[in-house]
């Protein structure tokens, strides 16, 4: 398995790709924060934020709908939020009898639910664009510059490096289990689900020991090569005037949208 298989970075040389990663991290968090701060039912402000995100998506050179298409990952979580439609006091729109519960859909509840849906979709698009236009080592450097503890950055770097290695290890374990588990098509597979969970548990234990022993070897290799705790990057990591300008413009725009949403 290659890291590319996991990495969501899209090669490119757009304006967003060339922006300092710090600006991109702060920008993404600012967009998310501004979106979450918008009050319920601020439709115009939601629309403006979305237009901003579409423009940014277009600016990555990946097409205007790149982030939109990938933003639906948040939808399963909405299942929990559905309940808010029936719990807020407001003008009743619809009554549903569900077992012991009498559910009353209210206009306030509906507005709240739609707002949550829109906020989560917008926020995740900002995060998608961030990783699509920023290489992983640059992202880590940016977080380091933003004073995330060095040891956390080092752990995450090691983790991402070994994700693929252990991912391959898991694939081998799964293949071995598959090879030893003959099943007749159309018939139930053998064993109870408790037994199957125990088999999975044994595999997890196996994987743990292999990983633990690997970390020993890694430490020795690290000592042998004088590892400094950070990955090299070709990015200069110097804030140019262009970076400051982009950040300033973005924050100004978000402030403007915030005003529109609250007036």
């Amino acid at each position: 398995m290659q890291f590319h298989a996991l990495d969501r970075y899209q090669t490119g040389d757009s304006f967003l790709h060339r922006l300092d990663p710090r600006v991109k991290v702060i920008g993404a968090v600012a967009i998310i924060l501004a979106t979450v701060l918008l009050p319920d039912g601020a439709w115009l402000a939601f629309l403006l934020t979305w237009l901003l995100l579409l423009a940014l998506s277009y600016a990555t050179g990946l097409g205007w709908d790149y982030a939109v298409k990938r933003s639906f990952v948040v939808l399963p979580f909405l299942l929990a939020a559905v309940t808010v439609m029936f719990s807020l006091p407001g003008r009743p729109l619809l009554g549903i009898q569900l077992g012991p519960w009498q559910l009353i859909l209210t206009d306030t509840g509906l507005i709240r639910f739609s707002s949550i849906l829109i906020r989560s979709l917008l926020a995740v698009q900002a995060a998608i664009l961030l990783v699509a236009a920023t290489r992983f080592p640059d992202l880590m450097h940016a977080l380091r510059h933003l004073h995330l503890p060095a040891v956390l950055v080092a752990i995450v770097s090691f983790m991402v490096r070994y994700l693929t290695v252990l991912g391959d290890e898991v694939k081998r374990l799964l293949r071995a289990r598959e090879a030893r588990s003959a099943a007749v098509t159309g018939q139930r597979a053998g064993g109870t689900w408790v037994w199957r969970a125990q088999v999975a548990g044994n595999m997890v234990g196996q994987l743990f020991l292999r990983s633990y022993e690997r970390s020993d070897r890694l430490y020795q290799a690290m000592l042998a090569r004088g590892y400094q705790g950070e990955w090299p990057t070709s990015n200069a990591h110097q804030m140019a005037r262009r970076d400051w300008l982009a950040l300033f413009m973005l924050l100004l725009l978000l402030l403007f949208i915030q005003l529109i949403g609250r007036l």
């Binding site: 983790m159 991402v160 252990l166």
Partner: peptide, 13 residues
């Protein structure tokens, strides 16, 4: 760093 890094990858895997 190497221990926790690999262990994080282990949980993920």
């Amino acid at each position: 760093a190497p221990l926790a890094g690999i262990m994080a990858a282990f949980i993920f895997a």
